[in-house]
Simulated scan of single mutants.
Amino acid sequence: MPQPLKMTSAQMVADAKARIREVDAPEAIEMAQRDDVVIVDLRDPRERERIGYIENAFHCPRGMVEFWVDPDSPYFKPIFGEDKTFIFHCASGWRSAITVATLQDMGMQNVAHITDGFKSWMESGGPIVGPKPKEG
């Protein structure tokens, strides 16, 4: 029998979404054209290879994000020190919602996520690089 949880993953996502900025895919597609915006892809490399990715998106695997944004971490990535708005995404918006809430808790500002993730980006006609999902 699994351990009883105090909070489900769905509750964590709902709590995160209640306190972060969400950007729908059409707005994210428009924002991606700006020099002061960085789209950050949290998905696993295999997801990116299988489905494709947003051109010029910065790839930051979900498991490294807290370390890559922290200037005191040996893993810090300078892109996160730039004065930009960072729009995070995953496949469907769950991982990115929790990520943005965590980054806000760390003190990061100008962060948001794509409401329904890469799926909604593609459904809204956003340009992608790499293979597209098979139709059928």
Rank of each mutant, 00 (worst) to 15 (best):
E66N: 12
I114E: 06
M108Y: 00
F80K: 02
I114S: 05
K84T: 02
S73E: 12
G81S: 15
T115Q: 09
T85I: 06
F67L: 04
F80M: 07
I87Q: 00
A112R: 00
F80G: 06
N110D: 11
T115A: 06
I87Y: 04
Q109D: 15
E82N: 08
D72P: 00
K119V: 15
H89V: 04
G93K: 09
L103Y: 05
M106S: 00
C90L: 10
F86M: 09
S96Y: 03
E82V: 06
G107I: 08
H89L: 12
F67E: 05
T115M: 10
W94A: 14
P78M: 06
Q109C: 06
F80D: 08
V69H: 03
F86K: 07
D70E: 10
M64H: 06
A112N: 10
F67D: 02
W68A: 09
F118N: 03
S96I: 07
F118R: 03
F88C: 00
Q104Y: 05
T99V: 04
I98L: 13
E66K: 14
W68N: 05
F88A: 04
Y75D: 12
T102L: 11
W68F: 12
D105F: 09
I79A: 14
A101V: 02
T99K: 02
K77H: 14
Q104D: 09
W68T: 13
K77I: 10
I87C: 08
D72I: 03
P71M: 11
E66S: 14
K84A: 07
P71E: 12
V65H: 08
L103M: 15
P78V: 03
M106R: 07
V65N: 10
P71C: 03
N110R: 09
H89N: 08
S96H: 09
I79L: 15
S92M: 12
F67I: 05
A112W: 00
A91S: 08
Q109K: 13
Y75M: 15
D116H: 13
D116T: 05
A112L: 01
S92P: 04
L103E: 05
K119Q: 15
Q104M: 14
D116P: 00
N110L: 01
M106W: 07
N110K: 14
E82P: 04
F76R: 03
T102G: 05
F86Q: 01
T102Y: 00
V69F: 06
F88R: 04
D83E: 12
G81D: 10
W94G: 15
R95F: 02
I87T: 03
A97N: 05
V69N: 02
G117L: 07
V100F: 03
Q104L: 11
F88M: 11
S92F: 09
F86V: 01
I79M: 14
G107A: 13
P78L: 02
I87S: 00
W68K: 13
G93Y: 07
H113V: 08
D83C: 07
V69W: 01
P71Q: 10
E66H: 02
C90K: 01
Q109W: 00
F118D: 04
R95E: 08
D83K: 15
G117R: 05
F86C: 01
A97E: 01
Q109T: 15
